Amino acid sequence: MSRNDIEVYHYCDAATFGVPPHRHDFYELYCLLSDSYTYHVEDNQYELHPGTLILVPPGETHWPELQGPPRDIERIVLWLNPEFISSLSIFLPKTLGAMGSNLQDEHLIVPEEKTYHVILNLLYSLLYEKNRADADSQYLCHLILSQLLIHISRVLNQRTKPQEDPGTRYGEIMKVHEYINAHYRESLSVSDLAQRFFLDKNTMTRQFKRIIGMTPGDYIRRKRLENARELIRQGYSIQHAGYSSGFSDYSAFFRAFRQYYGMSPGDLVGRSKASRRQQSEQESEE
Rank of each mutant, 00 (worst) to 15 (best):
C141W: 02
A182I: 01
S237G: 11
M214L: 13
G217Y: 09
N131I: 02
I173V: 12
A194F: 01
Q158G: 04
T203A: 06
L193C: 03
A194H: 00
Q163T: 01
D200V: 05
K201G: 08
G246L: 11
I232E: 09
I212F: 03
I144S: 08
S146I: 01
G217R: 06
A133Y: 02
F208V: 03
Y236Q: 14
R159F: 01
R224S: 01
G167K: 01
V176Y: 07
E164Q: 15
H177R: 09
D200L: 08
A133F: 02
N157S: 10
D218N: 07
I144P: 08
H151P: 01
S137E: 10
H142I: 03
L231T: 01
T215F: 12
V176L: 08
T205Q: 02
R132S: 06
K175P: 04
Q207F: 13
K209Q: 13
L140D: 02
Q147C: 06
I212G: 09
R159L: 05
A133I: 00
I212T: 08
G242Y: 03
E178Y: 06
S137C: 10
E172V: 13
Y179I: 03
R154V: 12
N131H: 08
H142P: 06
R222L: 14
Q234I: 07
Q239A: 11
E164M: 14
L231K: 10
S146C: 09
C141P: 04
G213T: 01
E230Q: 14
V176C: 09
Q239R: 14
Q207V: 06
N227M: 10
Y219F: 15
R169H: 13
Y243E: 15
Y243Q: 15
H183S: 14
L156E: 02
